[in-house]
Design a protein around this nucleic acid. Structure first.
Length: 836
RNA sequence: GCGGGAGUGGCCAAACCGGUAAAGGCGAUGGAUUCAAAAUCCAUUGCGCGCAAGCGCUUGUGGGUUCGAGUCCCACCUCCCGCACCA
């Protein structure tokens, strides 16, 4: 039995952490050169390990600690597997919170943001994260946003950025437009207030051009969580069907509609336009319907998007008093305006088939319109108040002219082909994805580099005049246009093309633009001739492992994919997909809840680093459970991990004190062999858990077992050279494998034991001879129930195992006269005797 | 409604290919140490019956496949996440 440790020097995390942080900082340990720079070595593979860059606000929170603890563990693990790891850091510094703070306090967003960056930088260093600080960037730095503007101009030249009037989402509280993606349940993602629909002229990126490629290229990815791919797939929302033209003869207007069910065309009994539809005015101008329609449209536009999309809302609408012609049968059907039709999906107009669409059915019932079934199931009745939309075997078209009797699957291509012959339609693919609205009527963002000239219209700012520097303003309050509009001497400029009077664009860019290419700037951060050199980018890209919160599953990740594809198409980049592998971490909770200031349950990393040291905080984060899952922060758990680290420290101090450096023993016996085998088992398990699955918690648990066994066995090992060598090896191994999680403690202990720097050592490899056991515990079952465990020789043949099993007293009791009808033998594991 | 994920001791969790369910941690109990407490070290700790050897039960519920199921199949219940009047 082990006794209390001899008196040893106590574990002083702060002293150790300060020491190693200074070494890493002074020596630039984590710097990695680019191709062409001194020290560049292409003989080992590169690995780009990247965590999502932080938005600097206040101080880092637990989520940051988790992201960077995971990423750093991986970066260290890969470095020690002979990879050149690039592991940079930067700040997503533009954004609303700093600006809202400025509105309240008058403090310039630059001042508060840079103060926060200083705090983040200091804390990241205090965590001992292995960053190549020479590559640090911030999106609000003119040296950075100059190139954001440059990329915008390239997209503009290529027609991928454009200005257009369109129905857009407006947040009255933040007084700016938003991207569709920034609306959550009809509310502004930032401030939580209901948003409205407005028709405004805005800047867009033509991401819809890339909809199909954004879907197809999921195949190119190495390892992304399936649910993230699914979320993006749903967001892009590809539907196959047909575009069909309905014509208003009286006015000679064609109305194309998109449908996934051209087989139900003969069931169309009316036609509906969205309130935002641009042809509405023309349809009703000068008719009796004009006033009621205008009133309905006004009301629909005033109602918030949240209200409009509320569930179970009764269908409303107004007849237009016009008809359109159904191209398949020449029938004139009435037209309506109704807000259940959305302008942003399809063409903003639909053919209504109440028999086969639940929404159309509800509208038809409310307005007493005919319901005509044109697809019949093979058997069974369909209730009157339910639209028949299923696709079942044996269903057939009815009352559908020449297509009657076909199955829907047959009819869809035939009807579409017929429409095409008539010039009334064609096969079509529709996407739910909308173009990315990038302009914001706010101050703290990257200025959009264009001017408006009375003669020349929209004129890009020439490259040699970039950056368009964000000027200081007096008043940050939003007034429906950007605060920049008030800076008259900045706004007034001359046209770069004709030299005449012109004014600058005063909107700024969505901050997601800044973060759509930052991972490329890290690669060539001081380049002042281009955002990055293609050769350098192609060397490091793609990001081999990207790590961040699942909240960016759609927005950031899709935008960055789009930017990469556009840059690749323009020849600036050699990869289509920026992030080969993605890992989405779970949240840190407190008492089962998200941490938030309003709940008062926020715990800050700094407090725990101060109390226990960074190694404890980081190791605890990695020990809490599988990192992809949410996990509850528990002070008792932190304490447990701290005890473990202290056990490692104290054990090492005692071992250093009582033993002498030596090589690991060659072929030990007894407890020395047992401990050596345990150390090799721990290496094997931790390597697999970290490398294959990111299951740091089980890797750390294996180290706990190794340390526990070392405590249990150490007193029987002291005094014997072989035993002491095994003990030294076990403790050095524990430190070596612990290094990715608790780098300071591990570096200190490893140096004490071996005189070398642990990060310069290759990752340990388990000795196969020591992974194999001479004996194993044979599990003996009778009829599948565990009846005995017998120590058996590892190389015993199957017959011997069966014999051992049958000879067991406990097994014989359970056979008890019955006969063994089957013997199942799993070598090295168990024998199951089936008796009857 | 559509799509995705999850349910294992008092709590967090492990069990990777169908083969000893519960490794590791927290908590709890007992002991050592201490004037005492904290800290530390050691031991016990799924539930039930039993003095004990032992026996039985146990992975949300109910079925099935199998010599053997936490793991595979079917049906259901509960919870979480994403999207949602998407034509």
């Amino acid at each position: 039995m082990s006794t209390n440790l001899r008196h040893v020097k106590p574990y002083e995390p702060h002293e150790i952490e300060r020491k190693w942080q200074r070494v890493w900082s002074d020596e630039g340990t984590w710097r990695v050169p680019n191709p062409g720079q001194p020290g560049f070595d292409d003989s080992v593979p590169k690995s780009y390990v990247l965590e999502m860059l932080p938005y600097p606000s206040g101080e880092p929170h637990m989520g940051h600690l988790k992201t960077y603890s995971i990423g750093d563990a991986l970066a260290h693990f890969r470095r020690r597997h002979a990879m050149r790891v690039i592991h940079p850091m930067g700040y997503d510094a533009f954004g609303l919170p700093a600006e809202n703070h400025a509105i309240r306090t008058g403090e310039h967003p630059r001042a508060s943001t840079e103060a926060s960056i200083e705090t983040f930088r200091r804390e990241f260093r205090s965590w001992g994260i292995s960053i190549d600080w020479s590559r640090e960037i911030s999106s609000h730095d003119p040296d950075y946003y100059r190139w954001t503007q440059w990329i915008f101009l390239r997209l503009l030249e290529r027609g991928l950025a454009y200005r257009a009037e369109a129905p857009v989402v407006w947040c009255p509280h933040d007084a700016t437009v938003l991207a569709n993606e920034q609306v959550v349940d009809g509310r502004c993602e930032r401030c939580g207030n209901p948003v409205e629909s407005r028709r405004l002229e805005q800047w867009f990126f033509r991401i819809t051009d890339y909809a199909q490629r954004l879907l197809d290229d999921f195949d190119e990815l190495d390892s992304w969580p399936e649910h993230v791919i699914t979320m993006q797939r749903n967001w892009i929302g590809r539907s196959e069907g047909a575009e069909v033209v309905f014509t208003c003869e009286e006015l000679g207007i064609d109305f194309p509609v998109f449908t996934t069910r051209p087989d139900t065309l003969f069931g169309a009994t009316f036609f509906v336009l969205a309130p935002e539809h641009p042809e509405l005015e023309r349809l009703v101008a000068g008719t009796d319907a004009e006033d009621p329609v205008r009133e309905y449209v006004d009301r629909a536009m005033r109602a918030g998007i949240e209200e409009r999309s509320a569930e179970d809302r009764p269908k409303t609408g107004v007849p237009l008093g016009r008809t359109v012609i159904n191209p398949v049968n020449g029938e004139r059907i009435p037209t309506f305006v109704a807000d259940y039709v959305l302008m942003e999906y399809g063409t903003g107009a639909i053919m209504a088939v109440p028999a086969h669409d639940q929404r159309d059915l509800e509208f038809a019932q409310a307005f007493d319109l005919p319901i005509r079934r044109v697809v019949e199931p093979a058997e069974g009745e369909v209730p009157d108040d339910v639209a028949y939309v299923e696709h079942t075997a044996g269903e057939r078209l009815v009352d559908s002219g020449p297509f009657t009797g076909m199955t829907p699957a047959e009819a869809i291509p035939k009807i579409t082909a017929w429409l095409e012959e008539q010039g009334k339609g064609h096969p079509a693919v529709n996407y739910r994805l909308r173009d990315w609205l990038l302009s914001r009527q706010r101050y703290w963002g990257c200025p959009i580099p264009v001017v408006y000239c009375e003669e020349c219209g929209i004129v890009p700012v020439p490259d040699d005049q970039l950056p368009v520097v964000l000027p200081d303003v007096e008043d940050y309050a939003p007034k429906g246009k950007s605060p920049l509009a008030a800076v008259e001497d900045w706004v007034a400029t001359e046209c770069p093309r004709c030299g005449g009077p012109a004014h600058r664009e005063t909107d700024t860019m969505d901050t997601f633009v800044d973060s759509s290419w930052y991972f490329l700037r890290y690669l060539d951060p001081r380049n002042d001739a281009a955002p990055f050199e293609r050769e350098i980018a192609d060397h490091w890209m793609p990001v081999d492992q990207y790590i961040g919160g699942v909240e960016h599953a759609i927005l950031h990740l899709m935008y960055a994919r789009f930017f990469s594809k556009a840059l690749a198409d323009m020849g600036y980049l050699g990869v289509q997909e920026p992030f080969a592998s993605l890992f989405t971490q779970g949240m840190i909770l407190r008492d089962g809840d998200k941490m938030s200031k309003s709940k008062g349950n926020v715990v800050s990393p700094a407090e725990y680093v101060r109390r226990y040291g960074a190694d404890t905080a980081r190791t605890y984060i990695c020990f809490m459970g599988p990192p992809e899952k949410d996990a509850d922060w528990a002070d008792a758990g932190v304490h447990g991990v701290h005890s473990f680290l202290r056990r490692v420290w104290s054990l090492a101090q005692e071992v250093i004190d009582r033993t002498h450096p030596s090589d690991p023993p060659q072929d030990p016996e007894g407890p020395a062999r047992e401990l050596l085998a345990k150390a090799n088992w721990a290496i094997d398990k931790a390597t697999a858990d970290i490398g294959r699955r990111f299951h740091f918690h089980t890797a750390i648990a294996a180290l706990m077992e190794l340390v526990n066994d070392s405590y249990r066995l150490k007193d029987s090992l002291y005094g014997d050279p072989t035993g002491e060598a095994a003990l030294r090896f076990a403790v050095a191994t524990a430190a070596s494998v612990l290094f990715p999680f608790a780098p300071h403690l591990a570096a200190e202990v490893y140096e004490q034991l071996t005189g070398t720097r642990v990060w310069e050592q290759p990752w340990p490899e388990a000795d196969p001879a020591l992974l194999e056991r001479e004996t194993f515990t044979l599990v003996v079952q009778v009829n599948g129930k565990l009846r005995d465990r017998i120590e058996a020789s590892a190389d015993a043949p199957e017959e011997d195992l069966v014999r051992l099993a049958r000879e067991s007293d406990r097994v014989r009791e359970h056979i008890d006269g019955r006969s063994v009808v089957k013997e199942i033998v799993i070598p090295g594991k168990l024998v199951n005797l089936v008796v009857r």
